[in-house]
Design a binder for these strands. Structure first.
Lengths: 253, 253
DNA sequence: GCGGAGTTGTGGTCTGAACAGCTGCTAGGT
DNA sequence: ACCTAGCAGCTGTTCAGACCACAACTCCGC
């Protein structure tokens, strides 16, 4: 059996070497790689090859270049912004149906609220309270939506799961882009808005009382109420499946 | 009040223009961008600038270049390989803990199995059965892991949620590469492997019987059993919170 | 009709150059 | 002695031109 030969392009080999060096800990965040012209000598390749490799590493968020530095490209620690950017692009390109986005928000929101109820600190509670007060003080739909966003951001932060936080943020943004002003609480009348705020207060109370099950259930129901109006019957059913399903099953018995 | 100026580098502007064109649908997956030398004329920049932009777009998974093509860079649809690569990097940089990935898989897996139980077709069941048979026939750990992957792919497909499918696939690939052989069922003895297969048969039976609650519970428990051995007590607790939490809460009353 | 050699266009790489921005040193003035 | 303006050096950024390898297309001879 022969192993498939991988014809690598030169810049890919450079990327792999630098990437491995960073992952291996030879370069810690904050350190500086050798300047481009030195890398050219070390790798024995042309300048453009080194630069293309650095562009890839930069787009991955591993390094950062800035002119005038005396020390070369900087190894920066946080890869999350690059990851978030790519995920956002992927979501945009997939042209995901709104019902899938809402369905995901119900799933991820329930889990995030459940986790937040167990792991939240008092500081988280204060920030959630502040977000609700910002919702009450909002005069236009944009400010209201932003305050609502802020509440969910704190919940995800309290949940303490980086993946849940990152994906949730991207999907939440995508939902806002698609349905901005059309559906959801921001477009509702003031009575609808008050009800929406009251829902959030109930969620906050459940999180404060470390009642994860109630927090998850309330969060799912609130999302369903906010968006179900814009969906047809078949789509609503796909969402309703996620609301208290275990109870439904036990009733079926 | 002055607005901060954003000094953009030339290749970033090129990236943004091409990116927007793709997202706007001007170039569908499978289409071809103009050749590099034509882009040089169109954008009025040098060749290396265009090439650096193309490298960034390529690392994001948006385009693919191959020498000898008469048509220019190809716009490719799937961004997931790039996402997986970057997520793996984030984990290796210890920016995202492995426990977060496992926790996410439990959350998303439970939801996917629950949805699949309601929406699956007979064809899905046949493919799940085929995946389980492939697990039984697997001789090495890699084949076993691949067959396990295949089962979950079908489940996500049956669930019919694009977000869950895309993100779930990325996370699954990332965990596969990171923990393959170290933890998880692939490293276990044959008894552990048989138990793992039996779990999947039970999940399949629940999905076939349209019992979403049971399918979700079994899937969560299987994942927890597979990975909990490699985690410490505090991490295990973060996972255990997600297993049958409503029952725990009702018992607390 | 068909197979093979030449042509053409493509991406991949290298070289050399010039420019802009920042840093650090230095010389001059106070 | 201290401060500041200017200079030199190094950095990243961009451009132009050239060459190579490769794939596809074309055309010619069989």
């Amino acid at each position: 059996m022969f192993t498939p030969v991988d014809k690598k392009r030169a810049f890919e080999a450079v990327v792999q070497q630098i990437e491995s060096a960073i992952y291996a800990g030879e370069y810690a965040p904050g350190d500086f790689l050798p300047p481009e012209r030195t890398l050219v000598e070390d790798f024995g390749v042309g300048r453009s090859t080194v630069r293309e490799a650095l562009r890839i590493l930069e787009s991955m968020g591993l390094v950062r270049t800035s002119p005038g530095s005396r020390s070369g490209p900087e190894v920066c620690g946080s890869v999350t912004p690059g990851l978030t950017r790519m995920l956002r692009g992927a979501v945009r390109m997939e042209e995901i149906p709104v019902v899938d986005l809402v369905q995901y928000r119900i799933i991820a929101g329930a889990a995030a609220n459940r986790l937040a109820a167990h792991l939240r600190t008092d500081e988280h509670l204060e920030r959630m309270e502040a977000a609700i007060e910002a919702m009450e003080a909002a005069t236009d739909a944009a400010a209201f939506a932003a305050a609502d966003d802020g509440f969910h951001v704190v919940v995800r932060e309290a949940a303490g799961n980086r993946v849940l936080g990152m994906v949730g943020g991207v999907i939440q943004d995508a939902t806002l882009d698609l349905v901005a002003g059309a559906v959801g609480p921001s477009a509702g009348a003031s009575r609808m808005r008050r009800e929406f705020i009251a829902d959030h207060r109930r969620i906050l109370a459940a999180i404060a009382g470390r009642d994860g099950g109630t927090a998850a259930r309330l969060a799912s129901q609130t999302l369903y109420d906010a968006y179900s109006g814009a969906l047809d019957e078949e789509q609503r059913h796909r969402l309703a499946v996620l609301l208290e399903p275990d109870v439904r099953n036990s009733r079926d018995h």
